[in-house]
Design a protein around this nucleic acid. Sequence first.
DNA 1: TTGGTTGTTATGTATATACATATTGCAGCG
DNA 2: CGCTGCAATATGTATATACATAACAACCAA
Lengths: 247, 247
Amino acid sequence: MALSETDETGGEATSLHQRILADISERILSGEWPPGHRIPFEHELTEQYDCSRMTVNKALSQLAKAGLIERRRRSGSFVRRPQSQAAVLEIHDIRVEVEALGLPYRYERVSRRERKGNQGDRALLGLDTPEQVLVLEGLHFAGKRPFCLEDRVISLQAVPEAAEESFLDVAPGPWLVARVPWNSAEHRIRATAADKATAAVLDIAVGSPCLVVERRTWSAGQPVTHVRFTYAADNHTLVARFTPSQT
Amino acid sequence: MALSETDETGGEATSLHQRILADISERILSGEWPPGHRIPFEHELTEQYDCSRMTVNKALSQLAKAGLIERRRRSGSFVRRPQSQAAVLEIHDIRVEVEALGLPYRYERVSRRERKGNQGDRALLGLDTPEQVLVLEGLHFAGKRPFCLEDRVISLQAVPEAAEESFLDVAPGPWLVARVPWNSAEHRIRATAADKATAAVLDIAVGSPCLVVERRTWSAGQPVTHVRFTYAADNHTLVARFTPSQT
DNA sequence: TTGGTTGTTATGTATATACATATTGCAGCG
DNA sequence: CGCTGCAATATGTATATACATAACAACCAA
């Protein structure tokens, strides 16, 4: 009955499963089905879209995982009320950001030290045992102006190859990404006043506001690196998006 | 044949589908299967886990959607190299944040104005036509100290009920969340120096660094509100996590 | 050598079916 | 009256199957 005219309505080449998904999301997002509303039972949707329960089930499960609906056995599926706002923050490579501004990018090492991890290093990395670490300081340039200061600690236990690398004009970020297979990470974002040293390298006034992004990275459960990016306030805005129904 | 030894292996009450998912993610995340590695064909995994192709397919599709693998017809599925680092940023309610610090929370209205949207308002909301807007300024307190300044514009076309509300001691954030069904939002995070007015209400020195979080919200494709939160630098750190294989 | 046809392969999507499991309502019994 | 247990119901998970589609290889013919 439904969808006897499959390809004349939208004309799109989307799969049925995606059509159901889009349909229902739209109704929820538009407010047509408000929070608390019981959406049709699977067997009803099965009739509406003239398809099998498996297809409907797959779509509904996806909606449930996305947090749009809540499923209760024996009762049905219900529109959830929006709660923990979560937004997706895109963490770009600094080179990409600079080049997006139409400026030439350059990285320059400021200092490089190899040492047995002291208490500070271990705290940053989240290590228990004192092991060899590589401590790097570098500057990212946009054109001739310094764009961002990078302070980094790398665990040489996790990435022994780093000991062979000078990082004179190779930014450690992309270098690590290319070598360490898969990461989990934690970011901390805050504002600070530039201290004397930071102000000097970033070519700004002491005490002027900076955006600081700190990242701790693990791979295979092992601490890999801790990095702190310091941007002069005008240089950088982070953008995060919240779209409940992603593809 | 299948599942004859269901409960003796892991002992866990997880579904097979989840077990496959966890298994493969772990191998990828641990580096055992590096980027570019071809993971076993569906029919091989079918044998390995002694289950149907549908189950394997579902798990692999999920991994593909999570970005861990890339699927190519005729060639197989391959471990992707990590690329666009995306992190999930939890946007908490300010009341929750303050109370997490063990301090009593209070909201206080500073000003309230209703007007035909001027150019600035329309730019913030992303409106084309001049329509009635509600402009609010308020302070969030942690104990006796100001914690965060809020500047907000609400489209009265999208939320007419807001005209009836004084927002004297009700924070407009939660009020809106309870009333406007489902949102999409865009956040911008940056650091600025406190201007005179901001410094005065936040009880900090002029020019001292602040973390600014701006949020634009749409519901059903229509602009709803724009809000700017200004935190004194010491008051706030945003935390974002990246975990490639979520539940 | 070039160009198209054909076949193989692995994934993509959908189906019908089966059984498990959680929850609710109701009937019946103490 | 209240508790217990059974039946009904909706979702959860898995199966076997079928056909579509994209990509590649190999072959054959102009």
